[in-house]
Each structure stands twice: as structure tokens, then as C-alpha cells.
Design a protein around this nucleic acid. Structure first.
Lengths: 226, 226
DNA sequence: GTCTATAGTCGGATAGAC
DNA sequence: GTCTATCCGACTATAGAC
């Protein structure tokens, strides 16, 4: 149900508003603490309609994560596909692979730091701590794919196609440098005296990420300016 | 109630076992989803005794965090105090400050990744997403102090005493490289094929962190071997 | 201090009218 | 598709016996 040729029916409107409300309430309260009554109230819908449209609370929760995976694939899919197809042979500090890596990290950071993803971030963080069926959906469709691609790029930039534990460690620490701005969001704002993470902040963060990555992987960043 | 000259009374034993069980169950399930019945069962105690010893569930939760803050200060306090007192003047890549920085990060990582603190880490991460009264205490007593110290060390290693936004960005990205192993726990285990983050893994992580930090701050790591 | 028992509340699910 | 009403289990807190 991606696009509609005709106007959405009444039932579809209800379904979508319950789904949107569920995303907010699950993110705010966690699965267990979120009540179907609170979700229905936030959606301006009747509590019994959750059962009608989604079966039960658990399936509503899963549907929220499928929805997120759809959206992330829309946002990041083209970039991932392009990078996957342009992977260059393993050569130390190869500018082609270096550029792909910096593109990937920049795209990931821009997505992760956007307003739209702040709700998702809390949902995903909850799942990381206590993985359920929902985490499998997300890992297989998004997280694993990004991690695999990033790790491969790191390995090739270090001169090999086979991936070592060291490559994985480098890839994870790179992801950490992005994630921390979401995970420690409030602390970051306090620390920097920022009101929010807006375009200027995202720019400064991405610039710093690129400098860090270049240093860690001994990439000549001057050479990349084309 | 840190030490006892005499054997603990029966009531104290009950109190402590409820507290220990509460820490586990709150970490596993979160505040709301953790039931006093489950806590009592895990503590081999009667559910009504929670009311007797702690008043109510909320106060039991707060007591858990006070206990953690005490313990973290015991573990990390001496290291922090030593580093604070040994801060060297600002000189680019000064080996003295470099060693302090690597000590700080290693100590922080070792604590954050140890078995003992895995339960605490989950409690704190839960709080970070939906901060309550419990988080402020922890932030002011531990997290803020570590962040401030780390930022000062970064600034001095880059040749100044005043802290710039760039210094803060570097400090945050360093913290992110440690945090990610707890925050993205489920994804990390899958990506590496690890069953848990044990001593071997912690050693490899810390080694990689030090290499990354040395690269980012242009520290000559050979020069540090004393 | 510890126990049993229960009052009072809330939440998920669903039957059945419209 | 949407609504009201309700069943029933689970929860916190507490009264009161020992």
C-alpha cells in the first residue's frame, strides 16, 4: 500500500492514523507501557478498532517496524544500491572507495539526524536492548545491510576483500560516532549550548565525521576534492 | 550502609536481595513493565515486603539508581580525580595529556563494557531515552564530569585551554565510539558473531579505540610507550 | 519483619449492535 | 468499519494476622 490512485477510504484513514499514533506512543512509552487505549486516544480512534485493523497490540507493533523499514529503504535504498554497485577493488586508501565511504556515512548521518527519524531512533534503541521479532525485521532489511556495506568498504580501503575483526571494529566505531548524537541527544544539546540539531549542526557534525574517518583510515582528504 | 561491623540482620538481607533483584528486573523490563511480583519472586521474598522496605515501586527504582551512582563513583572517582589533578598545560600532542586521555577512555570503556556494569548500562540507557528524576542525579555525578574532563583534554591536546565547538565534537565522537558497543548491543553481537562482550572483546575494543583516538588527534602512540 | 488476602485499578481482547 | 459494553487477567498497594 504505497500509493493510491484514488482517495483513501475511511478505513484506510483510520488505519493510518492508528499506525502513526502507535509509532509515537510506542516510542515514548515502550511496548509494554504503551496502552492500546492511549494509542486510540492519540489517533482519535476507537480502542476496539486496533483489534479490527491490526489483530492485536503485538501485530500493531510489528507493523510499525515494517513501516519504518519501508521508509528507510526509500530514503537510503538508492544510495546503498549505488554504492554497492560501485565498490572498487581493494587498494589502500583508494580515492574511489574513500569517496563511497564518506558518501555512505554522510547519507547515514543526514538521515539519522533528521527530525523524521527521532521517533524511530527511540523505537530502535528499545529493540537493541531487548530484541524482539521486530528487531529481526529491521536488522535484515536495514541495519545489517548498512553494516555489511560499511565493513566491506573499510576492508577494501585497508587493502583486502576479506573482512577481519579489525575491519568490523573500525566500522562499528564509525557508526558510533554518528549514533551518539541521537543516543545522547539531550546531553549533546546541553554540552554544546545548541537548541536543536539543525542544518548548521548537521553540517559541522558531518565535516568532523569525515575528518575523523580520514584520520582513522589514513585517507588523503585533499586528494578527494574533484 | 556500606559496611557492617556485625552480621546483617534478617531484614537487611531481605532489603538487599530485593534491591539486587529490582536492579536486574528493572534493567530487563524497564520501570513500567517490571512488576513488583516479578521482583519479589527473583529476590525470593514476599511481594508485600517491597512496600515495607521501600515504600513503593517508584522509591525502589530511585534507590537502585542511588546505589549505582555510589558504586560508579567508587569505581571511576579515583581515576577522574587523578586525571583532573594531573592535567598538563596545552601543548599540541603533549605525551602527558595524551596518556591521560587514553587512560580516561580506557577506564571508561573497561567500566562500561564490564559484566558488572552491563545491568547498569541498560538501566541508564532506559533513563536516557525517557529521563526521570533518576537520570539527573547520574548525569551530574558521573556523565557530565567525564564529558567535561574529556573535552578539556582534547582541547589541550590541540594546543589550547579554551574549548571550541570542534573540541566538543571530537570529544563526543570519542564517547560515541565506546557507547555504541552498549547501545547497539544486539547489532554488534550479530555483526561479529559474538555471544557476549567478554574480556577478549573488551581488550580488542580498547586497542582499537586507542588507535582511532591517536589517529584523530595526531598522537604519536610509539612515543607513549614508557 | 514476614506473611496471606484482598481492595481498587488498569489493560487487552472481543461480542454484538448499528 | 465503527461503536459501546464487558470479560477477565494482572497489577500496586495495603490491611491485618502472626
Amino acid at each position: 500500500m504505497i500509493g493510491h490512485a484514488t482517495a483513501p477510504s475511511r478505513g484506510e484513514v483510520t488505519r493510518e492514523s492508528i499506525l502513526a499514533a502507535a509509532m509515537e506512543v510506542f516510542a515514548r512509552d515502550g511496548f509494554r507501557a504503551a496502552s492500546t487505549r492511549a494509542i486510540a486516544r492519540a489517533a482519535n480512534a476507537n480502542q476496539a478498532l486496533i483489534g479490527y485493523h491490526f489483530g492485536n497490540k503485538q501485530r500493531l507493533y510489528l507493523t510499525v517496524f515494517e513501516h519504518i523499514a519501508d521508509r528507510v529503504e526509500t530514503l537510503l535504498g538508492p544510495t546503498l544500491a549505488r554504492i554497492e554497485s560501485e565498490l572498487a577493488p581493494p587498494v589502500d586508501g583508494d580515492p574511489a572507495n574513500a569517496r563511497l565511504l564518506l558518501d555512505l556515512v554522510s547519507g547515514f548521518a543526514a538521515m539519522l539526524l533528521s527530525d523524521e527519524t527521532s521517533t524511530w531512533a527511540r523505537l530502535i534503541l528499545n529493540e537493541q536492548q531487548r530484541p524482539s521479532e521486530a528487531f529481526d525485521v529491521l536488522y535484515q532489511r536495514v541495519i545489517g545491510r548498512v553494516a555489511r556495506l560499511l565493513t566491506q568498504l573499510v576492508a577494501r580501503l585497508r587493502g583486502r576483500t576479506d573482512v577481519t575483526e579489525e575491519d568490523r571494529l573500525i566500522a562499528i566505531t564509525i557508526i558510533g560516532q554518528v549514533l551518539v548524537f541521537r543516543v545522547a541527544h539531550a546531553a549533546v544539546l546541553r554540552q554544546f549550548g545548541w537548541n536543536d540539531i539543525g542544518p548548521r549542526q548537521v553540517g559541522a557534525i558531518i565535516e568532523r565525521l569525515q575528518a575523523n574517518i580520514a584520520a582513522i583510515l589514513a585517507i588523503d582528504i585533499e586528494q578527494l576534492a574533484s
